[in-house]
Design a protein around this nucleic acid. Sequence first.
RNA 1: GGAGAGGUGGGUGAGUGGCUGAAACCAAUAGUUUGCUAAACUGUCGUAGGGGUUAAACCUUACCGGGGGUUCGAAUCCCCCCCUCUCCGCCA
Length: 423
Amino acid sequence: MLQLQVVREETAKVIEGLEKRNFKDADAMVASVIEKDKTKRVLQTQLQEEEAKLNQESKRVGELMKAGKQDEATTLRNQIAIAKETVKENTEKLKVLERELTELLYKIPNVPASTVPKGKAADDNIYEQAIGSIPTLAPDAMPHWELIKKYDIIDFDLGIKIAGAGFPVYKGKGAKLQRALINFFLSEGDKAGYIEMQPPIVVNEASGYGTGQLPDKEGQMYFVNEDGLYLIPTAEVPITNLYRDVMVQEDQLPIKNMGYTPCFRREAGSWGAHVRGLNRLHQFDKVEIVQISKPENSYELLEEMSKHVASLLEKLELPYRRLLLCGGDMGFNSAMTYDFEVYSAAQQRWLEVSSVSNFETFQANRLKLRYKNKEGKTQLLHTLNGSALALPRIVAAILENNQTKEGIKIPKVLVPWTGFEWI
RNA sequence: GGAGAGGUGGGUGAGUGGCUGAAACCAAUAGUUUGCUAAACUGUCGUAGGGGUUAAACCUUACCGGGGGUUCGAAUCCCCCCCUCUCCGCCA
């Protein structure tokens, strides 16, 4: 959620930023926030004066009683009773205004960083030079959904039987490959200084609001009605929420956490032609990296995280490219996002495997995640996160790109973790 | 699932109707002393708002888990809810 103060004081900049992400009615939306805020403040000032008077008079009643002036005290008490009615009414009005104001703010996405390009959709993203060589496959090369059948390593039908579409069962070497990737990613993260966390994979409502999945993406999360819990769509949610309502000591910054979790996504309405096999699932595994930083160096850390992701892809010997998302393609909460895509040679498609974002204070504002700076002033921190990495599409690319007549060759870095070189 | 205890500032923790936005201690911070480090001493120090100021000063409101209520006045009394802990039961 944007800070009200920022909307109020840097209105033009906010509108300009929102237009960059093609947010419709940016102008009107911001205008209504400002107007409502103004109305609220007028009422608030008035109410506070009334309350101040009331407080004084109450004190006076006590003094009069102590002095034994019962009659005066009673008269004053009756006066107070009348004034209280107005205060009560205005308190109600103020509450309504505050609620409306928050609801408006919830609907406004983050303001993109100045370097984020304007744009509507994927075409307007800035694609950087691809790194790594795209393999030339034999004419009879198979897409991964055929390979997994041929080698019997992932079974979609079994998943359908016990859960439903989008819940694959990994078998034998398929399961071991999953475990190897998770271990590899965690071990690399560890070397890069990230503290591993194993959080719950369900979260409460407050956590959903904290990182901004709620109310924006209500229908995209699985919900356990009985207990009011959401299955996490990403480890970002529990890990970032570890720091909800926290006042961080300055010398602990930046905080670097990571976690492996399964991720659950309903993907309501997004099932289509391009989602065969592992391309889109309801449940998948991911290692997520999270950083919490002082405002002044969050963009440095974004680059650092991006480099970490790139190094993983290079070690896995997968051809990839980085892109800077344009305003229109960025997530609701983000101020700047890099996506990483891997080339999956049999599908001849680029697949998104990581998204690294700086949220600036957008999440911290809701989370009340702050620190005291050197001047002793309390300040919101910046939150960042990135996938490092999401497994299924990595698996798809490894299977497709490394297929040979002899079988599928496992990337060298993974062999210590898989215990085998070929599938 | 049953019974009990409890939720107070960055932390520990005192506080049962007005003198309490809250003792004390710790942490933090500024300074004094000491050759350095350490220690000691002194000062400052909750959060979010509103008004006000060039900026301060200053004035003011709300907040002691959340929501209602009683009262002229509530951290303190009453009701509901949430959460945590302990014991019993069940159990990986």
